[in-house]
Design a binder for these strands. Structure first.
Lengths: 229, 229
DNA sequence: GTAGACAAGATTGTTGACAATCTCGCGCGG
DNA sequence: CCGCGCGAGATTGTCAACAATCTTGTCTAC
């Protein structure tokens, strides 16, 4: 891997991990010092990140980590729903025995984490399961698009899993998906995956609406669409 | 629009229009002279185009226009199918009367071009219809993804429309999509759109297979996966 | 005649300096 | 006291020169 690639990946990881926060200003010289690369390398990386919508570039004003709105998050989840539906169907058709075993193992992991009320662990296994299904689909194009969409959603990662009762329902949905894939039933697999992500979308809109109500009812503060950090 | 943006758009258009051919080498100095900009802005434009897979960049060897394989084209069509299905459904829910009228007008255009055996015109109206449906869906995320996917498919643009009988069937499919949208029936609209693009995909694989048979049966030449220009 | 080494030219990659633009605090006038 | 303009410093944008690497054609050895 070349130096510019490394810088690009590092920055991408810093944003994904939340170490660089949404709306945070990204000063080329500072990043260059931090990554120990030249400013030109940082510039190239920022251009690339801009192209995949991780940052927004404003002429003469530099780059900021993109802050995605809830409305955008909903759109992203809808797009993911149909694309991951496609991969679930393809996985039902094409998964090898080995891949199926791996998927089932991850599902068992999720069950265990759920029983232990380990929500962080559950969330990780959740992501691993989706990744395993996508890998089993062997659909490069869908995989790439989904990866791009997921990268933009870090801010909402843990929002839905925290609503009471949601983890149990989430697990049931994943179980249905895996069953359909194991049964080699592409239509059902696709349908279950889409249903699952619609539920996530519904939960997200719901918590967002609740949050806005909470922010609106206390005295004083006029209503703003988004609280800027 | 800034100078680098202009160069990026221009290069993108040159590739989309086929003026820069697949696999063609893109020499920075030549492009700089052609676009009358500095080499630095050409470089930035190439990086951006690399990020959206219009060109492939090889370290120390520069950029080439990406040549997408038929297998990749199939994947792209599958991804487009589910995403455009999403937009068709959204359009059925959200299209205004004005947008519906515009969509119907374009459909009438297609009918006219078809009656005149104007395949090029038909193809253009076809693209316009898809664009109108996407616009009516007001789904920015899906729209952006579809635009990216379409940009990679220029090479296969006219392949399917040339098979005998295909234009008539294509028109019937579009009619069904538009009817469902006009009837405010999202499920049917999505389904018809997906069916339409599956047919395109099927036709594409079919012509590809036929082409390979033709290339394989004559004497001599050993079988290659891809004929390099 | 052919394979391989080599060198010249072409092309890409990197750097630093400079120009253009923006940000922010300060002072001025109201 | 507050809004506004101004200017110094910070930051981004551009460019040309140079370094690193690749490509291509030639020559030599077998």
């Amino acid at each position: 891997m070349t130096v510019p690639d490394g810088a690009y990946e590092t920055l991408r990881a810093l944003i994904s991990s939340g170490e660089l926060m949404p709306n945070e200003r990204l000063v080329e010289a500072d990043l260059a010092a931090r990554l120990e690369v030249s400013r030109a390398v940082v510039r190239q990386a920022l251009v690339r990140l801009g192209q995949d919508r991780m940052v927004v570039l404003t002429p003469h004003r530099g780059a900021r980590v993109r802050m995605v709105t809830e409305a955008e998050a909903v759109e992203i989840l809808q797009a993911r729903a149909v694309l991951e539906g496609l991969t679930a169907g393809a996985a039902a058709r094409r998964a090898t025995g080995r891949e199926l075993a791996s998927i089932r193992r991850i599902l068992a992991d999720m069950d265990r984490k759920l029983a232990q009320d380990d929500l962080l662990g559950y969330s990780e296994s959740n992501a691993a399961l989706h990744a395993a299904i996508i890998a089993a689909s062997r659909h490069e194009t869908a995989a790439r698009l989904i990866r791009g969409l997921r990268a933009q959603m870090v801010r909402f990662q843990f929002r839905t899993i925290l609503v009471p009762g949601r983890p149990a329902q989430s697990f049931a949905e994943h179980l249905a998906i895996v069953d359909a894939i194991a049964a080699r039933d592409p239509e059902t697999a696709e349908d279950m995956m889409r249903r699952h992500l619609s539920h996530v979308e519904g939960t997200l809109s719901h918590t967002t609406a609740a949050k806005q109500r909470r922010a609106a009812t206390p005295p004083g503060k006029p209503t703003h669409k988004e609280s800027h950090v």
